[in-house]
Amino acid sequence: MRDAVAVGMATGAYGVAFGAAGVAAGFSVLQTCLSSLLVFTGASQFALVGVIGAGGGAAAAVGSALLLGARNALYGVRLSGVLGWTGWRRLVAAQGMIDESAAMALARPEPRAARLAFVSTATSVFVLWNLATLIGAVGATAVGDPAVLGLDAAAPAGFLALLAPRLREGGGVWRVAAAGAVIALLATPWLPPGVPVLLASFGVLVAVRTR
C-alpha cells in the first residue's frame, strides 16, 4: 500500500504537465479532464493532445493514441491469470490496466498480494492523475496563453520522459529509437501532423531486420 501511494504521487505530479498540455493544445478544461477520466493512459493522452496541438487531424491523433495504448491489452493478457477476476471485476480492472499497476502486480508472486498491489496502485494513480490533470488545466487556463510559460512544450517533453528509461537499456532499443526518428524526420515535411508518429512505429521492423 505504501509503495502504491508513492507510485501514485509520482505519476500524479506528471499529470499536471498533461493538464497544461491539453489546454495548450486547445482543449477546454472539461475536455482535458475527461481525457484523464475516460482514457487514463498517459502516453496515449500526450499523443492525442500533441498531434491535435500540432495541427493534426482527429484520425491521426486517435491512431497515435491507440498505437501507444495497445500495450495495455498485452498487460491484460499477462495478468488475467494472475488476478483471476471475471465479470464486472474484469471490466473495472481493464480501466486500471496501466504500466504502474501491471508492474506492481507482476512483482508479487502470491495471487492475493498481486491483486492488492494492482488495486491499490491503480486507485492511487487514477485519483492523483485526475486531480493533477485538473490542477494543470485550471492553472494553464489562468495563465491565458500557455505558450508564454513554455507549456506548449509539455507534450514533447512528456514523450522524452517516457523514452528516457528505455534508451538507457541500450542494445536493440537504440536501433528502434534511431530508426523511428529517421522515419519521422523524413515523413514530417510531406505528411500531416500525427502521421509521421504512426509511421515511426515501423522502426521496430527495421531494427529487427538488422539484428
Score class of each variant (00 low, 15 high):
Pro192Tyr: 03
Ala178Asp: 11
Ile52Leu: 15
Val119Pro: 04
Leu131Asp: 03
Ala157Thr: 07
Val23Trp: 01
Val5Ala: 12
Arg168Gln: 14
Phe159Ser: 05
Val204Arg: 06
Gly76Gln: 04
Ala6Leu: 15
Leu131Glu: 05
Ala103Ser: 14
Val195Asn: 10
Gly26Gln: 08
Ala117Cys: 06
Leu186Ser: 09
Val197Thr: 13
Gly26Asn: 08
Ala59Asn: 09
Ala200Pro: 02
Val125Ser: 07
Phe40Arg: 10
Trp190Ile: 14
Gly69Ala: 09
Gly96Phe: 03
Ala161Gln: 10
Ala117Asn: 02
Ala102Ser: 14
Asp145Asn: 13
Phe202Ile: 15
Val62Cys: 06
Ala140Asp: 00
Thr32Glu: 02
Ala122His: 04
Glu100Arg: 01
Leu67Lys: 00
Gln95Cys: 13
Val51Asn: 00
Gly69Pro: 05
Thr121Gln: 05
Asn72Gln: 05
Ala93Ile: 04
Tyr14Trp: 15
Gly12Thr: 05
Val197His: 08
Leu186Trp: 11
Leu83Arg: 02
Ala187Lys: 02
Phe18His: 03
Ala70Tyr: 08
Ala25Asn: 06
Val138Tyr: 10
Ser64Lys: 07
Gly150Pro: 02
Ala147Tyr: 11
Arg175Ala: 15
Arg90Val: 12
Leu191Pro: 08
Thr141Met: 15
Arg112Tyr: 13
Ile135Glu: 00
Val82Asp: 06
Val197Ile: 15
Gly81Tyr: 03
Gly19Phe: 08
Gly56Asp: 01
Leu30Arg: 13
Leu198Asn: 00
Thr11Pro: 12
Leu167Tyr: 04
Leu83Ile: 03
Leu66Cys: 12
Leu151Gly: 04
Thr133Met: 07
Gly203Thr: 09
Leu91Ala: 15
Val92Thr: 12
Ala61Trp: 00
Arg168Pro: 08
Arg89Tyr: 05
Ala177Met: 01
Asn130Ala: 11
Thr210Ala: 15
Ala137Tyr: 05
Ala113Gly: 05
Val195Tyr: 08
Ile135Val: 12
Leu191Val: 09
Gly194Val: 05
Gly19Asn: 06
Gly8Tyr: 01
Val51Tyr: 09
Asn72Ala: 07
Ala157Cys: 09
Gly26Tyr: 07
Phe126Lys: 08
Gly172Cys: 11
Val127Leu: 12
Leu198Gln: 03
Trp190Tyr: 15
Phe126Arg: 07
Trp174Thr: 14
Leu48Met: 13
Ala142Lys: 14
Pro109Cys: 14
Val29Gly: 08
Ala147Asn: 10
Val7Gly: 01
Leu91Asp: 14
Gly136Tyr: 02
Gly139Trp: 06
Ala184Leu: 09
Ala61Ser: 07
Leu91Ile: 15
Ser64Phe: 10
Ala153Arg: 08
Ala157Phe: 04
Leu191Asp: 10
Leu167Met: 02
Arg2Phe: 14
Gly150Val: 01
Arg115Lys: 14
Thr133Gln: 05
Leu83Tyr: 00
Asp152Asn: 07
Asp3Lys: 13
Val7Glu: 06
Arg89Gly: 06
Val62Trp: 02
Leu134His: 01
Val5Cys: 10
Ala13Ser: 13
Ala207Phe: 10
Gly57Arg: 05
Gly87Lys: 06
Ala113Pro: 04
Ala94Gly: 07
Ala140Pro: 02
Ala61Tyr: 00
Val148His: 13
Ala114Asp: 08
Ala70Leu: 12
Leu116Ala: 15
Gly171Cys: 11
Pro111Cys: 11
Gly56Ile: 02
Ala17Phe: 11
Phe159Gly: 00
Val92Arg: 13
Gly8Asp: 02
Gly19Tyr: 06
Arg2Cys: 13
Ser44Tyr: 08
Gly144Ala: 00
Glu110Ser: 13
Ala61Phe: 03
Val143Ile: 14
